[in-house]
């Protein structure tokens, strides 16, 4: 970033030519258009979710809430299934991510050591799974034969180590921990366990942050595929499966709409509910995302160094 800055300031001192000024203006316009296109659907969804059911069904909502109402949110808060899904997703994300991060770190550290016999072969065995896999059914059969079907374990154990995450972690250890440091610890009489615990782990904090985010968001919170194939029991469903039922398959518990007598209003509530649900489901990630954004960027950068 430092080099970036000096380059910018140098350019600033040069007078922009006529052509360059036109270029910069169209460039800014382009970015404004892109940003608007990204924002528009988001603003529309949020506005609709705070509008009244009548306004939604009459198609009056565009960019601002019409007849401000919290009815959609109130209806969701009374819906047990959504809350159960929320709780399950938090469970899977929390324990799943801990499992993923520990496995990735204890695999990556030995594999980052040049003096490990068999390092290349084992690394290749991990990376190969990025290029080729046994496939859906054979993996399903393993999970079935281990007796994990329809248990919480099925949402955690199969996720294990993501090859891309392993790769960036190995790269991180290689580029940030000098071999002399490990050698010094050895000379001081530290075993590999001790070195790992007292030297490596404290230095690994940035990569642990990156891994936690990658796994929590991409492997757990936002996915539904594992739940779709491994879980049958409604009580175990994560939020994404519940969302799929309501948003995509249109199946809304009739009991949720029971207070509303008018058929048209009931239809309106059905749509209003979806808008509110989209907002509620995305809020947790959207709240933490600005704070963790730089970690994601860092992770991508480590990955790009390779």
């Amino acid at each position: 970033m430092a080099t970036m800055k000096s380059y910018e300031s140098n350019i600033n001192t040069v007078n922009e030519s006529y052509i360059d000024r036109i270029f910069l203006m169209s460039n800014t316009t382009l970015l404004l258009v892109v940003t608007t296109i990204i924002l528009l659907p988001l603003v529309y969804i949020v506005s609709a979710s705070f509008s009244s059911a009548e306004a939604v069904i009459a198609g009056k909502v565009t960019l601002w809430p019409v007849d401000f109402s919290l009815l959609g949110y109130e209806t969701i808060f009374e819906h047990k299934k959504v809350w159960n899904g929320f709780a399950n997703s938090i469970f899977y994300t929390f324990f799943g991510t801990i499992f993923n991060v520990i496995m990735t770190i204890i695999a990556a550290y030995p594999l980052s050591r040049n003096d490990l016999v068999g390092r290349r072969f084992i690394t290749f065995a991990f990376i190969f799974t990025m290029l080729f896999s046994g496939g859906l059914i054979p993996t399903y059969m393993v999970v079935r034969d281990l007796g994990l079907l329809n248990t919480r374990w099925a949402m955690i154990l199969p996720t294990g180590i993501g090859p891309f995450n392993l790769l960036i972690t190995i790269t991180f250890f290689r580029t940030t921990i000098p071999p002399e440091l490990i050698e010094a610890a050895r000379i001081d009489g530290a075993s590999d366990f001790r070195t790992f615990r007292s030297v490596i782990l404290p230095l690994a904090r940035p990569i642990i942050a990156v891994l936690t985010l990658f796994y929590a968001v991409n492997t757990h919170w936002n996915t539904y595929f594992q739940a779709l194939i491994y879980l049958k029991d409604q009580d175990l469903f994560p939020l994404q499966i519940v969302l799929r039922e309501i948003l995509i398959q249109n199946s809304i518990d009739a009991s949720m709409l029971i207070d509303v007598e008018d058929l048209v209003a009931r239809e309106g509530l059905r749509d209003l509910l979806k808008f509110s649900l989209i907002v509620v489901a995305s809020v947790p990630v959207m709240i933490i995302y600005p704070f963790v954004q730089r970690h994601f960027v860092k992770g991508m950068m480590i990955g790009s160094v390779k």
């Binding site: 609709a48 936002n222 994404q240 969302l243 995509i248 995305s282």
Partner: peptide, 14 residues
Amino acid sequence: FISTVVIVGMLFQF
């Protein structure tokens, strides 16, 4: 950072 289910749900509503 929006999940696939929500994106598709958004498409349906939008």
